[in-house]
Design a protein around this nucleic acid. Structure first.
Lengths: 168, 168
DNA sequence: ACATACTTTCAATATTTTCTGAAATTATAA
DNA sequence: TTATAATTTCAGAAAATATTGAAAGTATGT
């Protein structure tokens, strides 16, 4: 397989992959392109490589920057702004975990706590099942939350090393 | 908060939550409804509670069954078929992990292995970055894969207990 | 200040995804 | 077998999402 073909394949698959994770196709493709670009590239480069409009590139790069996955870089002597992605996959993963935790898990746990305050007789079958379900999810979510916090703070080698030993 | 209101809130939030995970809103809502229903319910019950069409219920319950999250139940003396969801959240989580691993992670790892075979000079900057990125993701994915396998096989109490001790 | 290069915004449009509902199919009972 | 009940399918409609492109906004150099 030629490099050009392999690149196209990687970008396309990474894009499809992203859609399963609530990330839009284009944003994932831009991320993929940046992951395999050794040097920072411009809006125009991205437009050209992925055949998408300027507006689209602009919006999605902004989102990637918001997610902390991509940085704007200023190159001395250049007017245009350049983009580059964090290449260390462990850092990419912890960054994504951190953001999703903040955006999704934390609010969900907060809501569940609210729902546990529902008024009603615990002898009633409907009420009981509701409370049991909510409590179960909250407990599980709470554990996941703690575990992810440790992961985020951990260092890759420590984490993988210890975890592998632990799981042997 | 009244039970009716709390239920509606839970179903609606679970639905929104699902969309961030590549699951469609209705499928997640049906799942939520089943999670808080103490007894099995029918297509018609779901149609009525969520205000959606028969076809929609049919398609999404089928998917939930395919995902192994919902079971069809036959109740003696009843013509209609009933649905019920696994209530143990640990089991729900492992089932989801199992399916997503099969549907997404495994194929991705397979593709990455292919891409590592790309022909080209490793001295070339473009080629090198491509190979490094692909190898990095593959390595990380491989570790995640192993870890998830252990989780899937593990028993909840063992898992949470040990993990908590480990992470203390 | 002016001209030029570059970036951002957003209304209109296109695409993708989801949902409906009625027809076709299958199952059950008499 | 026939009537009735229940389920499934799927083409078309509706809704949700993503994309374009041109105009407005900013920054930079002279």
């Amino acid at each position: 397989m030629k490099l050009t073909e392999a690149k196209a394949q990687f970008i396309s698959s990474w894009g499809a992959f992203g859609t399963h994770w609530g990330i839009n196709r284009t944003m994932a493709q831009i991320h993929a392109l940046l992951l395999i670009s050794p040097d920072p590239i411009t809006q125009d480069d991205i437009m050209e490589q992925l055949n998408i409009s300027r507006g689209n590139v602009n919006m999605n790069t902004r989102d990637l920057v918001d997610w902390g996955l991509v940085d704007r870089v200023l190159i001395p002597g250049e007017r245009k702004e350049f983009f580059t992605a964090e290449k260390d996959i462990w850092k990419v993963a912890t960054q994504i975990i951190k953001e999703r935790k903040k955006r999704e898990l934390d609010p969900m746990l907060k809501l569940l706590s609210q729902l546990e305050k529902v008024e009603g007789d615990k002898k009633d079958k409907e009420t009981k099942q509701f409370l049991d379900t909510v409590a179960g999810i909250r407990k599980f979510g709470g554990q996941a939350d703690k575990m992810l916090d440790v992961m985020i703070k951990a260092d890759e080698s420590w984490f993988l090393g210890s975890l592998l030993k632990f799981f042997k």
